[in-house]
Nucleic acid binder design. Structure first.
Lengths: 128, 128
DNA sequence: ACGTATCATTACGTTAACGTCAATTTGTCT
DNA sequence: AGACAAATTGACGTTAACGTAATGATACGT
């Protein structure tokens, strides 16, 4: 079975981040590694969160925005108080992401067009 | 017909940016407004570039990366020297964007799932 | 001619997201 | 026990992308 907790070094290797980054995320309350004496041990939950954090970053969300979204993913049945507030936030993010998708499709299309133009240009030059 | 050039104020209004941003982009050689005395006049070309700049930003590209991509969009027949180099860059960006699209679809799916869970939870609480 | 608004330049300030370095502490091997 | 590697905690440094404030030139309406 998959090891229950990971030390900082393995965590860094697994996600291609630096120790500094993990400590920084803990300071910002994005991760909550447990302690074995002084050392950090990252749980399965931390790994799930980190995956979402890195994904969020690739989409251009700030760490603070990501922190709020993580609440939605890791909400347990007890703390449903702020659920509706979080849902509203999630809806905005979803709208953002879907708009981003439309734009992305457009941009990919345009870029492909330009690349075809450039490729043809190159070919016509090489056939001099 | 569409006005050939725009002053900084209109440009800001049209694209929802600050004057500082436009001057900054000029300093970074992303835009090349002409001068009327001291004042900047933004051309159609500047408007096209700014549109691409803002789009690039939404996709998480740095201004420097965007600057290099702009070369591809605004290359004229004369300066084809670095074309193939630029094409390589464009290919990397295209791959990036398509990977981003796949991930985005995934993320949208997951987020929707979480939102449905949360919405159902809320409903079951309100029907107490 | 004069006040006002708009633009310009210069320069220093700010925020996010870490990097880097020094000084300790702790576990491990011999 | 001594040495070494690995982790921790400050604390200060860095970069990108502008913000902001001060100062000065231009144009415009009256």
């Amino acid at each position: 079975m998959t090891t229950e907790t990971m030390n900082i070094r393995d965590m860094c290797a697994a996600f291609d981040v630096t120790p500094r980054t993990l400590r920084f995320y803990e300071a910002k309350e994005l991760l909550f590694p447990v302690r074995e004496g002084q050392r950090r041990l990252f749980t399965k939950r931390d790994r799930a969160r980190l995956k979402l954090i890195l994904r969020g970053k690739r989409f251009g969300f700030s760490l603070e925005e990501i922190r709020q979204l993580l609440d939605l993913y890791h909400m347990d049945d007890s703390q449903l108080t702020q659920l509706s507030k979080t849902l509203t936030l999630a809806e905005r993010h979803l709208a953002d992401m879907e708009a981003q998708k439309v734009e992305l499709d457009e941009a990919i299309g345009e870029l492909k067009g330009q690349m075809k133009w450039a490729t043809d240009k190159l070919a016509s030059l090489e056939a001099r």
